[in-house]
Write a protein that binds this DNA or RNA. Sequence first.
DNA 1: TGTAACTCCCCTCCG
DNA 2: GGGAGTTACA
Length: 674
Amino acid sequence: MAQPTSIPEAWQAVLNEPQLRAVTHGPGPLLIIAGAGTGKTRTIAYRVAWLISQGVAAERILLLTFTRRAAQEMTSRARHLSGRSTSEIWGGTFHAVANRLLRTYGRAVGLDPGFTVIDEGDAADLLGIIRTELGLSSKDKRFPRKSTIREIYSKVVNVRLPLKEVLERDFPWCVEAEAGLKEIFTRYTARKQAKRVLDYDDLLLFWSGLLDEPGLRAQLDRQFEHVLVDEYQDTNLVQAEILQKLRRDNRNITVVGDDAQSIYSFRGATVKNILDFPKQFPGATVVTLEENYRSVGPVLAVANAVMSRARARYTKNLWSNRQSKLLPALITCRDEPEQCQVVCDQILEHLEAGIRLQEQAVLFRAGHHSDMLEVELARRNIPFHKYGGLRFVEAAHVKDLVAFLRIVENPRDEVSWFRVLELLDGVGPKTARSVIDRLDAGGFRLADLASVPMPPAADAEFRSLVEVLAALESSAHGVASQVEMLRRFYEPFLPRLYDNPQPRARDLEQVENIARRYRSRQSFITDLTLDPPDSTADLAGPPHKDEDFLILSTMHSAKGCEWKVVYVIHAADGMIPSDMATEDEDGVEEERRLFYVALTRAKDRLYVLFPLRYYHRKYRMADTHLYAQLTRFVEPDDLPLFEQRVVRYGTVEPVAESGDGWTDIRARIDRLWQ
DNA sequence: TGTAACTCCCCTCCG
DNA sequence: GGGAGTTACA
């Protein structure tokens, strides 16, 4: 390494003391506990810039983040700081880096570099196919549905517990299926191997496996001189294992995280990773960042109150020098339409006061919680971009289109074959199966398709499918024109398959637009799976300068973001915490952290809203409206931290500061209806 | 025998 | 709005 240089003076003015210590830390393992809004991104960016200034080559830095966007932001900030190119940095998610490494070194562990990556939906489909083959889907005894089978599989792989234990602990209603599941899982792994397919979990497992090859391990160890990991509280066991294998010499590893923000245990993430880091990497230095630069005091007071009742945790309370006399608002609405109105009114009020829409965000627990609000926003011509929730690439018609490309890329991809063949009029599971079996026998050559017999009803469509595939296979066209060809072929299917063909057709044009950015079909397909466009903004291309839009986001997707004004809607028990998560204490605790993440996104103004009545489809047989309770994470003692408001027929009324408990407010509202 | 049409049920969060 | 299961038709 080059001789150490001194710390630029400008840096000392910008970074506080613990940040500076973290940035210039030497070769030993480093754990940065970074509370919400404490300048984590800044610290990592400066550390990367520091390493580069110390003579570390950019291509020898591995920066693992939660999203590709986060990696890009950090590397571009590091580029500005260091004045050197950072484009060679290995930055991205664990999955994306695994993909890249496996394409290069996969052969060493017996992996064909032409593998395709399948998402959860495809994985579930494949498990479903196997379940049918094994005759486990017969109706006499109930067997878990394919998406549940996938969840169980993923859990077993990620938490490294025996199937029996996972079933007893997390899926007690599936205990009887244990033998069948074992059989399915065995076939599943064999099938993935035969079809050259990897699921999300495999990417990590194969990367880990790669590091068990002594020669490769040494090579990768040299290649990555420094490893930095962001959002470490949301990594799982396999990811921690990868890091340990990468850093057997216990040097040059930096992890950053906040145990109070761990919100991905449903994905197998374990907060143990961050808590045990000093044990796993002996001699680790721990730097804690507690000064919050983001939020005003009253916002932090609410967040701290919510967190103060959490069980064991690492971090202390956050503090801030940013003063404000305005308390966060706790707004009780009669029902959901009123909640929508209040949010829209408030947004426009702030807009008129000079706060751009992009500086305002509405956060919610589940993607569909914003459905009604989206309608109201559209009605009032308030533009918005939504993050999280059901994603574009998961829509059936987009998956259909991509399935064609996957087939051409990897003719062994059984799941895609099923998907494509069943689109044809007159083709069901049986016919599809027989076509695939025939292809299998011939080694999956597209050329064999021409001789495959078809039921007369489907024959014409099948022949034109064969033509299209052949044209694609031999095509020298770019990815976008390949997509265009497919679109022309597939679009006529839409009216028969779906009842809203027009918007779907427009989506397909978007797929074509995205494809323009890619040179190879393979990277296009892989990116759609590993780094899908996560908002309507990503689809529209770079925004115009004067374009302004409100942000709607799930609380999960809000991680790492900040806005001047934040509205947390549906802050009622059953939504926050989600009633799916309230069966055990751990689940509730994770929901608490999630709520905490949402609250700490706000810089200046925070609004917590909830409707007193809401419509619940599940119970539509009876009274369609249920009564809601304020989220349990706000307790009566916390109420003085808020400015309370009640909405009555569209009019907002302040609640007198009389120390009224929550129950009183509700009684007051009840009286309004009578 | 295999596909289409119909009904009922359930619906988190994400790479 | 989609998946799973059931029934009706070719």
